[in-house]
Amino acid sequence: MIPAAFDYHRATSAEDAIAQLAEHGDEAKLMAGGHSLVPMMKLRLAVPTVVVDIGRVTELSYIREDGEQIAIGALTTHHMLENSDLLADQCPLLGAVAKVVGDPQVRHRGTLGGTLAHSDPASDLPAAVLALGGTLVAQGPNGTREIAASSFFTGYFESELADDEMLTEIRVPKCPNAGWNYQKFNRRAQDWAIVGVAAVVGDGITGVGLVNMGSVPVLATPVIDALADGASAADAASVAANETEAPADLNASPDYRRHLARVLTERALVASGVA
């Protein structure tokens, strides 16, 4: 399978990439690692006429402390996340979720910014960033703005990013003493999750994110509210599928997905230390 023809621009900086986006509008697509975009282009599900390769903008590849937060450059690979000592110490959920994305080859290329901007509801890391209450930094022609993860995902493969904006940084809170867990239910290694649940409880955070339970990565607000009211793990998990629109596909019916969401949420909460 071969992608449709396109023009290729290799960006030398975020500013350069944004200038290309401004020039070409929605005809252009940013490519980071390319491991979501290239498969979609091969299937002709994505047919950009201009590909702006940001894979060499290496100044956006970092994981560093920033006050009470960890700041992660958008071009940081999953491989870097899973091997980061800083994340393992201060925000272990993110590294652990990165470790179960795809397979090692994919993790060598795939990036955190790429998977968030791609906004696939079946991806693992968006749910983790949602659970952590992360902040996304978008850069456009007129500067940068911060977007809460909870308002970033707007539709199936659609995000809050404007056509001429690029994700440059992701910030997650330090939470070294929080309980955390990620439950990924799939039939085979390297598959997308049929349903996934990311939980983080403690250090001032109560977050639960759901994978593949709707057209966007879902923040499980009913569960979070129940926990705030002192619910047990079992009681909080019983509302995990509320307000979701679970999709149907070859792997699972909506009913089955709702069941999985409740079971996996309970497991994730118990593993995170909720009684």
Binding site: Y8, R10, G34, H35, V38, P39, D53, P104, Q105, V106, H108, R109
Partner: peptide, 10 residues
């Protein structure tokens, strides 16, 4: 390691 069917030569 990378999967060369998912990388552009460029």
């Amino acid at each position: 390691s990378v999967k060369s069917c998912t990388l552009l030569a460029v």
